[in-house]
Design a protein around this nucleic acid. Structure first.
Lengths: 262, 262
DNA sequence: CCCAAGGGTTGACGTTACGTCAGGGTCAAG
DNA sequence: CTTGACCCTGACGTAACGTCAACCCTTGGG
């Protein structure tokens, strides 16, 4: 007959585990010898190996209990299920490996590919990294709130970039940050230049009937506006200039009828 | 900005998990709004997704902490290690699947193949299942104690089965059990028949110099003897008859010099 | 004969990564 | 003004053991 450590050793589990199985009634308590030691027979070995095999497969002990105390049919059915779960788990781990590789490569897992593409295009246009970080963070927030629509929004952004004025606008904003001018007093000449470009873009967009679309909901629009204003006091100036010229808003900008400009 | 549930939802974790990460200092506590709600920015999203990806890979949170707060080199090195562990885990699960399949097929995971073969041969010889279960359990115990030598022992057993007298012995023991005679009073005629056969076998073995070999150690020998005696009172009778005829032991039986038979 | 080493015993608290209340406050909508 | 869907903190629950502590039994050596 076997002592507890011999039993455990043969099944490849720890002594503590065996005692735990006793405690929860998964493995029946065996006879004791004259000095109170547990002594095991062959049936305990068989049972323990079954337990270990199932536990190793990630099956909760409660379910192991059910399976081992059930009929042969229920048992094999259960094993089938567990095998299916195992295959699913293996696929999940293989997936995790891929995500891990992207993490190591510094890929932005927080962003959908469409946004990453867009940012790459900005970089390709010579926009400063500092500004791209700003955009990236903004888009992370937007993507977090409208994951379903983010691809459509990005498609729109790509169209915008086909316009050379828009490209110039990005460059200006970018240079502005890179030069460290964000904290310096407002230089009205450059601000007006920016406002001019934005207005040209807006007029063109208005003609094409592209203004005031409802792709984004109000919350997101407000979010983007806030991000824009926070980025630099100059941005706020641009907004006020545009307001004087009859535009309202930013992310979803609108023409104000001439008679209502204050 | 994002609320805790928006953050959690986007990263694919629960709100409770986020709060847990705050508690252990894995994700820094963000600013609060006027009513005490946590408000998150983009950096929290990035960090949380990194945490989630690593945690999903089975990395303990303490190690996630270390990795994320370390330099880029240590980080990618860590990812390499984790990927290696993931590959190992996948292999382990694939292995578990195989063992599971054997479990479902009713295969005896507790026994080395050589013993399974031996038992199959017994079954093939017409030995009753009831007796085979007895043998199986005995061999499980033996295999548990001398895993290294079990194959050699089995080879010996196979040789034994080449002897028709040995086969007849097994059949008698088997029928004896199957007939329910194990609990009935000892029938000396059949016991003597068994003893006769055993003695013939012993004499033959002694001539071939096969007696008293040291393949098994004392403990195992005692174990097998005990199993044999427990199996039936008749077995004990056979032993005592053999003892009167000058044999001592069973599993490792010896000739007693004629002048010392009591 | 005693002693140390190496088994065994029970009992109880520690660990990991959260889940799940309880008992509140807040906010937008009808 | 209530209702439902959020948010907050605090605290206990869970699974499957790990890890003491404090004790008993057995065995080989000086």
């Amino acid at each position: 007959m076997l002592t507890i450590s011999q039993l455990a050793g043969y099944a490849g589990v720890t002594v503590r585990a065996v005692r735990h199985y006793h405690q929860i009634g998964l493995l029946p308590e065996p006879e004791r010898d004259h000095s109170g030691y547990r002594i095991y027979g062959a049936t305990a070995v068989v049972r323990l190996i079954q337990i270990h095999t199932l536990a190793d497969a990630g099956v909760p002990l409660a379910r192991v209990q059910e399976l081992l105390d059930a009929g042969a049919e229920e048992f094999t059915d259960g094993i089938q299920d567990i095998d299916k779960e195992l295959r699913a788990e293996i696929r999940r781990l293989q997936n995790t490996r891929k995500r891990l590789a992207r993490l190591a490569a510094g890929d932005h897992l927080a962003l959908p590919p469409s946004v990453v593409e867009y940012l790459d295009r900005l970089r390709g246009l010579g926009v400063e990294d500092q500004y791209i970080v700003l955009e990236r963070d903004a888009w992370i927030l937007v993507a977090a709130q409208i994951p379903a629509e983010i691809d459509a929004v990005m498609a729109k952004k790509h169209e915008d970039l086909d316009d050379p004025d828009m490209v110039r606008l990005y460059r200006l904003a970018s240079d502005h940050l890179a030069s460290g001018a964000a904290d310096s007093p407002v230089d009205d000449r450059r601000v007006v230049e920016v406002a001019d470009i934005v207005e040209r873009l807006l007029i063109r967009a208005a003609k094409a009937g592209e203004l005031g679309d409802e792709t984004m909901d109000d919350q997101v629009v407000a979010l983007l506006d806030a991000t824009m204003i926070e980025s630099s006091p100059h941005a706020e100036r641009v907004l006020s200039i545009l307001e004087q010229r009859g535009w309202k808003g930013w992310t979803r900008i609108e023409r104000v009828p001439a008679d209502r400009i204050k």
